[in-house]
Nucleic acid binder design. Structure first.
Lengths: 348, 348
DNA sequence: CTGTTAGCGCATTCAC
DNA sequence: GTGAATGCGCTAACAG
């Protein structure tokens, strides 16, 4: 749908040649370096010189060229982040937290999305490194081999977010996927559930939670009766399809564990569409404690993670490291909490 | 919660001095410029020279310094975007679309969040411009005066997204807020609603939709009986508070129009908490057609906007302009659709 | 407090 | 095909 009213091509095409420090210096009758100092290091310059500079700069609409600046200082004030997905995910909140904290400290965010592909993550990293970021945030701890190598070679501060490992590339800020899986298993076993199914995104962390859950089940002599894998991006409908597939295969689980509340909501809707009572006939467990989870009917039992805090803490750790301040530790566990709502209940 | 297991500070602090084009050239026995061409302009170089270069580059783990490159070429392959909010908003999807399309064309995204503040937007813009982006995406058409001035002075391609205007800074891609307001008013009047209330975020676009709705009501001899303004960030609870406030003031609307589905969900929950039947006693209208809107109980009537498409089209328009390809027009209306669900119904 | 010199790493321009 | 010289815009290091 084009608006027919206005199809004149604005001809601001040829960019006005940019005005530089030298231009401002000439106007102010000073040397370029003095202008530079007046703008970035006022303490070294006489107050009225500063005033003269600011006036000249404002008059000419001077905008510094940070590319040139960073080329000499080797500081870009740029932090790059790679997340698997933005829409429909928990990462938007982490990115918002990251950005807020960075912004408050004068840093800017270069954002990339890997679509859950390790190869894509590596390609993005190469492009990112060429911009000389002061710090990098990666999602997860499982990367293409080249990633760790490149990162160690450049020596940029790195946070691996949303997971934990005893041997991070540099810093890890997240929580243990395994402990989530165990805790969920223990909780559901305690509730009396016996026939476990799962709907799990093809995502490394989700899968590790699932495996830990299965391991814990086996410790109690049980095994999952059905697993459905869903290919990201994680959208609600994949949860519907997942439950439909499990039931179509003839399984009759008494609880289905989903790797995301988004999938859990889908499973819930499918159950209701098929006339299966939740939680009476089927329990449903989600993950992520999305905003909507508390307001579905019935509300979804889930695992809460402070998504925003992960971003904020990642920013703080990077900035500390960049500025040479010591870190309390290079592995930060932000924890998680199981949130019991109404899609699970005590059985029999 | 710190993990006590590992508190050794990794001493990769002193960054290894980066290896440059010159280093690769030396190893390959060539001049730097030949290496540069082999990497970026292979047609100008003999095939086996290219091979030699690639080998040397790989052996040394060479990563180009794009700051230096961009300084001479005046092309940064960087697009900057400013959105009002990321979490709980429609903009995550737009950003995802923008990023996907940019990434496919070799551009990267510099992302900033303005928190709905015009002043913050301007400050961010200054920082952004200093990085010499090849294009910029702003949200909305109403900016601090300095924004338009700076943008016109530098001549960067700009997309104003999520709104329409006959006089964009450069390009506008969005839909008419006014027409949304009118359309919603007409729809609800057609349904027989008579006592209108609204819960509206303190956000320029939301407010223009509200004003257009009121104008249309007046055309039909009606006026809203109550308005509640909510300060962003837009979270569900503000919708609850909004409806509670309106009712506490003694108003008895038969329909409440919300500037976002997030607020609408809050209003719905509050209504149910107070035992007010939706839609029988109170109608609720949302905006944005968020994923969850179709799955609340009852599902929320809303206005659908293709959030992702706005991002994708913004990317395409910028890239076209950067590469000197002509645009079909500088105002693109992506339209919207009213989606009738179950929080509204035909009244008596 | 201010200026001079030099160089960051790369690509454009012009040679060969 | 390849190379040498030059400059992008800025700031570090050293003067004065």
């Amino acid at each position: 749908m084009m608006d027919p009213a206005d199809d004149t091509l604005p001809t601001n095409g040829d960019r006005p040649k940019s005005i530089t420090l030298k231009d401002v210096a000439r106007l102010a009758g000073l040397s370029p370096i003095t202008v530079s100092r007046a703008l970035h290091n006022p303490k070294l310059v006489k107050p009225d010189t500063i005033a003269r500079v600011k006036e000249a700069a404002a008059a000419m609409g001077y905008i510094p060229n940070m590319l040139a600046g960073s080329l000499t200082t080797k500081r870009s004030q740029l932090i790059a982040a790679i997340v698997p997905q933005l829409s429909n995910s928990m990462f938007a909140e982490t990115v918002q937290g990251l950005n807020d904290e960075l912004s408050a400290h004068g840093y800017q965010l270069l954002l990339s999305v890997s679509n859950y592909s390790r190869q894509k993550e590596e390609d993005l990293l190469t492009a990112i490194l060429s911009r000389q970021p002061d710090g990098i945030v990666l999602t997860g701890i499982n990367h293409h081999p080249g990633v760790r190598k490149k990162l160690l070679a450049t020596g940029v501060p790195v946070v691996e977010a949303w997971d934990l490992t005893p041997s991070p590339i540099d810093i890890a800020i997240g929580f243990s996927q395994e402990r989530v899986g165990e805790k969920v298993a223990q909780y559901l076993l305690g509730k009396g559930y016996k026939r476990f199914a799962s709907i799990c995104a093809r995502d490394e962390r989700a899968n590790r939670r699932r495996l830990a859950l299965e391991a814990e089940l086996q410790q109690h002599g049980m095994a999952p009766i059905a697993t459905h894998m869903a290919t990201p991006p994680t959208v609600m409908n994949l949860g519907r399809e997942g439950l439909r597939a499990i039931l179509a295969e003839g399984h009759a689980p008494d609880v289905v564990v989903c790797s995301s509340d988004v999938l859990a909501q889908g499973a819930l809707i499918e159950a209701q569409a098929q006339g299966i009572a939740v939680p009476d006939t089927l329990g449903i467990m989600g993950f992520g404690d999305f905003d909507f989870a508390a307001y579905t009917h019935p509300p979804i039992s889930s695992v809460h993670v402070d998504k925003r805090a992960i971003g904020v803490q990642a920013a703080r750790a990077l900035i500390a490291k960049i500025e040479g301040r010591p870190l309390a530790g290079n592995v930060v566990d932000v924890g998680f909490q199981l949130v019991e709502r109404a899609t699970t209940r005590t059985v029999g």
